[in-house]
Design a protein around this nucleic acid. Structure first.
Lengths: 355, 355
DNA sequence: CGTCATCAAGAAAACGTTTACTCAGAGCGG
DNA sequence: CCGCTCTGAGTAAACGTTTTCTTGATGACG
């Protein structure tokens, strides 16, 4: 039975106990600063810990304590500034609360999402899920029922899970209303992917606001897919048009930048010949020239609130009812829609601290 | 003994076994598609699994299998495009190998890093660490000895751990050499934070290449800290100087952008009056106008290679010796250093005057 | 001197799995 | 009908912790 110290493996609490000639219970008590352990014993244990480089096995610990101090984060993708901002916001809270994040972006479809959710079971205290694929049935089937979860910008709207969304619809209306207020009349929209929920909402906001502010003007919608390239192509189309619009509202900032490139190539001046507006306020937006007017989605805030909400339900699973909140984004006016004086340039946040 | 089904808690393998009236061993065999389990039993088990929404507890599973399929990622920070690119590269591989990432950015100093490393014990199969604070002693003390680890861009260079770095020194030399080749003579450098390793290496590369290519010319170094603001300030200083340099090599792209803003404000044309070059090739670099000449650090590749290397040592802990590799970055020539003909766009120059 | 609280420390159960071992019965050739 | 293999399924140990009980010792108090 006497266990030989194994070659490459790691020291466990038993090894420490044997070396210090105490029971594993005492080692555990020392490690967790528990009451009633004699000074001399404590010293012996600590010495053993040091000499063996003992580090407790968090997995085993959380098996019994039923607490992992990890939250799972499920994202559809990791490209672009949107997600890095989101993660940054989540991380800020995690850091504060000494939590770690278990990240998974492995889900292009519902099946993959299901797998990802399942493998998180037993590793996390709660889940932050952002995915176009969530639906109630999928959650029911794969989610151990008691696991707290917060949905981010997800289509699902039932009363069982907390949901945080960005009110793309109202943001889009606000932007169109702003453009109209500045005197623009022919306002085109470059849309995002048809299947994307936010893209749909932004398009709907564009249509509705236009219909209500300028009932005479027909909307013009060009297809796009949130990429710079699709923006560039749309921009070329618009520039070549005989009755060119005097403003373009793009479904996101990246598209807007693409448009601007196309306009410059065509010799159009932004905003004098044509105004451009985007959506998201990614860091890039304030750095291009002319600086981009856009709708600020406080992405980092979204992540932050989401995690905070999740922690609430983790801490009192019973008391907290599911919450649904929609963050209303705000219009950020910059040069690209024709502000007379460029505002003072200042990057909104500290830029890269490392190379 | 008879366990009552507890209210909010989750179904365990025991509950399934009881419901299907088999032993837990059989349930386990069914879940893992093991051999020799009768068709009828399998069906009973699956039915129970479905009706209880049973999802195996990954934590418990990896306790016994000694495999977590998770790798830990320790970063100093999460700001900026550098890290989002890095994570993207890491994630690409993780996705492919069906791994999850346990992310922690909670370490501003060595003590916090130590805590982060310790809490990962037992939760991960290996560690990817990027931190200015790693040193051999810290690793020894807090790292369960057998845990595979790959260091990213870290000062530590011992023979015990694999290390991947970016060869900032050679990148900087290449850029200075390029500028000299284009005919620039008075080349200034805006440095990064003094304590940052990459900043130091870039500065050293600048000095060395200048000394060897243009032994007559005195180097001029301005302080900076990788922020746009510091670049802006340095740019103002340079623009006001009586014997203004004809080129600026900035320690990173964000600084370079700051410089360009200052130059535009001062009425200087880039690149005609003064050339600008950066370092990193963040996505922004190709979008500003004039597009920024820079040194391309394939950040995503760095993350990718690092994880691949880590997986190698996880899979054959004995056979694989620690590897040290330095990725040599390459100069990317764009308009800001005075290429005669911008790749496609003629009107770019016009845009430069706008703000 | 007996009772009782107090304290330090050990024994053992529990967390939810996987897996080596065991075992009963079936099929079957000799 | 005896031993043999083969199959399906159960038993129990193990993974590394925490924590509840238990116990033995020590001394205080009546």
């Amino acid at each position: 039975m006497a266990r030989i110290a194994r070659g490459g493996s790691q020291a466990s609490i038993k090894d420490v106990a044997r070396k210090a000639r105490v029971s594993i219970a005492s080692v555990s008590r020392v490690m967790n600063d528990h009451d009633s352990v004699g000074a001399e014993t404590r010293e012996r244990v600590l010495a053993a810990v040091r000499s063996l480089h003992y580090v407790p096995h968090s997995g085993a610990r959380s098996l019994i304590t039923q607490r992992t101090n990890v939250v799972g984060v499920l994202l559809p993708d990791l490209h672009g500034e949107f997600f890095s901002e989101l993660i940054r916001g989540i991380d800020a809270v995690a850091r504060l609360r000494r939590l770690q994040l278990l990240l998974s972006s492995t889900h292009g479809d519902a099946a993959e999402l299901a797998v990802a959710i399942r493998t998180m079971r037993g590793r996390v205290d709660g889940l932050l899920v952002m995915s176009p694929h969530v639906d109630a049935a999928l959650l029911d089937k794969n989610l151990p029922s008691a696991l707290p979860i917060v949905l981010l910008n997800s289509p699902l709207e039932d009363a069982r899970h907390s949901t945080l969304t960005i009110d793309s619809y109202r943001g889009a209306r606000a932007m169109v209303s702003h453009l109209v207020g500045r005197g623009h009349r022919r306002i085109a929209h470059v849309a995002g992917p048809e299947l994307n929920l936010d893209a749909q909402e932004r398009l709907r906001g564009y249509r509705d606001e236009l219909a209500s502010s300028l009932p005479r003007v027909a909307p013009q919608v060009l297809p796009g897919n949130f990429s710079e390239k699709s923006g560039y192509l749309a921009g070329r189309l618009l520039a070549a048009q005989p009755d060119r619009p005097d403003a373009v509202f793009a479904a996101n900032d990246v598209i807007a930048v693409g448009c601007m490139v196309a306009f410059r190539e065509a010799g159009l001046r932004v905003p004098d010949d044509i105004a451009v507006a985007g959506f998201d306020d990614i860091p890039l937006a304030s750095l291009v020239s002319p600086a981009l007017t856009t709708v600020r989605v406080q992405i980092a805030d979204l992540g932050q609130s989401a995690l905070e909400q999740l922690l609430l339900s983790i801490e009192s699973p019973t008391r907290s009812r599911p919450v649904s909140r929609a963050l209303v984004p705000e219009v950020v006016v910059r040069e690209s829609c024709g502000v007379e004086k460029p505002p003072k340039r200042r990057s909104r946040r500290q830029a890269a601290r490392l190379p």
